[in-house]
Design a binder for these strands. Structure first.
Length: 342
DNA sequence: AGTCCACTGGAACATGGGGTGC
DNA sequence: GCACCCCATGTTCCAGTGGACT
């Protein structure tokens, strides 16, 4: 039933972008100077998750590479590579310039020097989830390199600006800003239909089912495609000819649970212990969390460190925090609680 | 209004693991 | 082997915030 599984994967870049003509033209025009061998401005692409920010950025960059020789591109996920060192390392790695760089003993400034000396070609650096950077000063490093064009992808513009220093804010404010809104249900339907057409055998999924997926995903294309992938994968394993309505019911929960599991897997044992306490006893305040945590683990971390864990898990959308001060309470985010397929 | 206190999060500092160069 | 360097992680300190209580 699955004809081309790649089409249903999260990072797949389609050959045509649906319903994003204005954004596509805008971002293309920002990178346009590169076609004449000139430096391009920084672009900031913002919008909620699943609005196609990464997809659009990769698409535009790939098309640029088709047009112009000697343009390289690199995509850095700042969630995983959240330190200045890791970002610079990842970029050099993609450019094949890390042979003699050692993670532990190469000064960061040397990485910047190395990038500055790299003048084989112009490079487009896509910084995905740039608001997750622990130390945004790496943006400053990259700005100082003429051969590099930067596309910053973030959920919210203000979240990004609030964390960088004044010099950088003024530079970023003058950057070109591409805003992406959530897809309407019928737009998301078109996207899902295009993926189903390329990725699945004909007749595997009905129009009505695609509308239901689009509805459940509430404008989030990543989630919609995830639901379709989950349903198709299960149908395939159980050797059905088509996706049944029963399969679809579980698929939304499965897709969300998969996203959550990936976040859970990235936690350290101490972070996991804190998460489990909130799962078992939540909603619960920070003091009780720390008391229970201290009882349960050997060599417990301090309150301050547990606070850092809690705020990180909140960012990961694993925990909900309610209240601001003494009334603060944490509880877990339950994927099965959010808009199931009707 | 004033005080207390739990909580938050930034900043500086300390520690430890892993690597280099002599 | 050892001094040194770098990054990641955790700790200490502290100012700011806001609810509860007097």
């Amino acid at each position: 039933m699955i004809r081309d599984a790649r089409v249903l994967r999260a990072g797949f870049v389609p050959s045509e972008i649906e319903h994003r003509d204005a954004e596509l033209n805008h971002l293309s025009s920002v990178l346009e100077p590169i076609t004449n061998g000139e430096p391009a401005d920084t672009a900031i692409v913002t919008g909620p998750s699943g609005t196609g920010k990464t997809c659009l950025s990769k698409f535009v960059t790939e098309r640029l590479q088709e047009e112009v020789l000697d343009v390289k591109s690199t995509h850095v996920n700042c969630w995983r590579n959240y330190t200045r060192f890791r970002v610079l390392y990842q970029i050099l790695d993609d450019l094949g310039k890390t042979i003699d760089i050692h993670r532990q003993s190469t000064p960061r400034d040397e990485l910047v020097d190395r990038l500055q000396q790299y003048d084989d070609s112009r490079t487009v650096v896509i910084l995905d989830e740039v608001d997750q950077l622990e130390d945004p000063s790496v943006l400053y490093d990259l700005h100082s390199i003429e051969n590099i064009a930067i596309i910053c992808i973030a959920n919210e513009e203000e979240q990004l600006f609030s964390r960088v220093d004044d010099r950088l804010v003024s530079r970023l404010r003058s950057s070109e800003h591409v805003r992406m809104d959530r897809y309407h249900n019928d737009q998301l339907y078109d996207i899902l239909q295009a993926r189903a057409k390329r990725g699945l055998d004909p007749g595997t999924v009905t129009e009505h089912q695609l509308y239901r997926i689009a509805d459940a995903a509430a404008g989030d294309a990543r989630l919609g495609i995830g639901i379709l992938r989950s349903a198709a994968g299960k149908a395939d394993r159980e050797e059905y000819e088509e996706i049944t309505d029963d399969l679809l019911l579980d698929a939304a929960t499965d897709a969300r649970a998969q996203i959550k599991q990936r976040s859970l897997d990235s936690l350290t044992p101490h972070q996991r212990a804190v998460y489990d306490i909130v799962r078992k006893h939540g909603p619960v305040g920070p003091s009780e969390i720390h008391d229970r945590y201290t009882d349960e683990v050997d060599d417990p971390r301090t309150k301050r460190t547990v606070r850092t864990y809690l705020s990180k898990m909140e960012q990961y959308n694993l925990l909900d925090a309610e209240g601001t001060s003494r009334d603060r309470e944490y509880s877990i985010v339950d994927p099965s609680n959010t808009s199931p397929i009707q």
